[in-house]
């Protein structure tokens, strides 16, 4: 268990600023998710923490010790690669024991420690197999076992679930989180999948363009998004943004409902909504359309739960509404969140 402090780290590849001045503290035992679209610098940031990349400037502290100039082997971090990077010529046992050999741990302990790790992850029967004889989920667990076996200060996970099929991913998400809670190892998890991020993280760090956009609990980043990037990146679909009086008015699709479906006592803002398309998704209905006075290219989306059975037809002009507490306001130029504006 350890803390990780990233102080104003930048990383340039020639002209590209992969990381652009990120400052971030990870607390002891925390499960922190680095979330962002591909190319946002999240993987580079993780590799910088692991020591596989050296920052152009800034420093990295693990457990208060400055490790910026140290090679990966001196940092006591473990990493699970997106590809799992299992050694194909070694058996599962030898894959897991490999880090122990490097740490100079006495030979007598190897067997017990490998078996312990294998037992936690249900790999006891696979120890003699080679990676190519394993399924995707098993490979992922071997990679995890190899990471945990030496009890590292920090675990780094680089999109470890992205190679699993959808069904397996859900159970692996659950296992991974239970596992992290049990070990209590400080964990940094990189993903571009907001569902994984929301479901697993103690806190989420949203990144874009090499910058840290927001750091907070899943609830905070979702409901109190710091800027338009975070607001539109999170949620499916993301937040609707409508230009109005020189600022951007934002509201989430699930809070944008037909007037008739709103509780009568709440304070609401009403919109005439020109319905263009209706998508039926089983649990929800997505209504695409244009809000009155909004430009033609700004499509807004309403997400009606199946409980709202109110019929909505294409080409209908219907009255929709959002409760005042669900309205968000952003600066039109910087995209940053601003205080409530006159409607």
């Amino acid at each position: 268990m350890a803390t990780v402090d990233i102080n104003n780290v930048t990383k340039h590849f020639d002209d590209v600023r992969a990381i652009d001045g990120v400052t971030l503290s990870v607390q002891e035992g925390e499960f922190l998710v680095l979330l962002g679209p591909s190319g946002c610098g999240k993987t580079t940031l993780m590799r910088t923490i692991a020591g596989l990349e050296h920052p152009t400037s800034g420093e990295i502290l693990i457990d208060g010790r400055n490790v910026t100039g140290l090679p990966p082997r001196a940092r006591d971090v473990a990493m699970v690669f997106q590809s799992y990077a299992l050694y194909p010529h070694k058996t599962v046992f030898n894959n897991i024991v490999f880090p122990l050999k490097a740490q100079g741990i006495p030979k007598e302990e190897w067997d017990t420690r490998v078996r312990e790790a294998a037992q936690v992850l249900g790999l006891e029967k696979l120890l003699d197999r080679r990676p190519r004889q394993l399924s995707g989920g098993e490979r992922q667990r071997v990679a995890l076992a190899r990471a945990m076996v030496r009890d590292p200060k920090v675990m780094l996970l680089d999109e470890p679930l992205s190679n699993l099929d959808a069904k397996l991913r859900a159970s692996a998400r659950d296992e991974l989180q239970t596992f992290q809670r049990r070990l209590g190892t400080t964990t940094i998890f990189v993903t571009h999948d907001q569902v994984e991020a929301m479901g697993m993280g103690d806190r989420i760090a949203v990144m874009s363009g090499g910058k840290l956009r927001q750091l907070g609990t899943p609830h905070e980043v979702y409901t109190e998004s710091a800027d338009t990037f975070v607001a539109t990146f999170l949620g499916s679909p993301g937040m609707n943004l409508i230009p109005r009086n020189g600022y951007l008015l934002g509201f989430r699709p699930e809070n944008f409902l037909p007037r008739e479906a709103m509780p009568s006592q709440s304070q609401i803002e009403t919109f005439r909504f020109d319905v263009k398309r209706v998508e039926y998704l089983g649990a929800d209905r997505l209504i695409y359309g244009i809000v009155d006075h909004a430009p033609d290219d700004v499509i807004s989306i309403a997400r009606l739960p199946s409980a709202v059975t109110f019929p909505i037809e294409v080409h209908e002009n219907h009255e929709f509404a959002v409760a005042h507490e669900h309205l968000r306001y952003f600066d039109a130029d910087t995209g940053l969140r601003i205080s409530p504006q006159p409607l």
């Binding site: 082997r73 590809s83 194909p88 010529h89 490999f98």
Partner: peptide, 26 residues
């Protein structure tokens, strides 16, 4: 794959050792 050497380096080996123990056998 580069990942294999990097994994060995994170697992506690120098680049030279990662080369000898992972790249050479492969």
């Amino acid at each position: 794959p580069k990942d294999l050497e990097e994994a060995a380096m994170v697992d506690g080996y120098s680049r030279a050792a990662a080369f000898l123990k992972v790249v050479m056998p492969l």
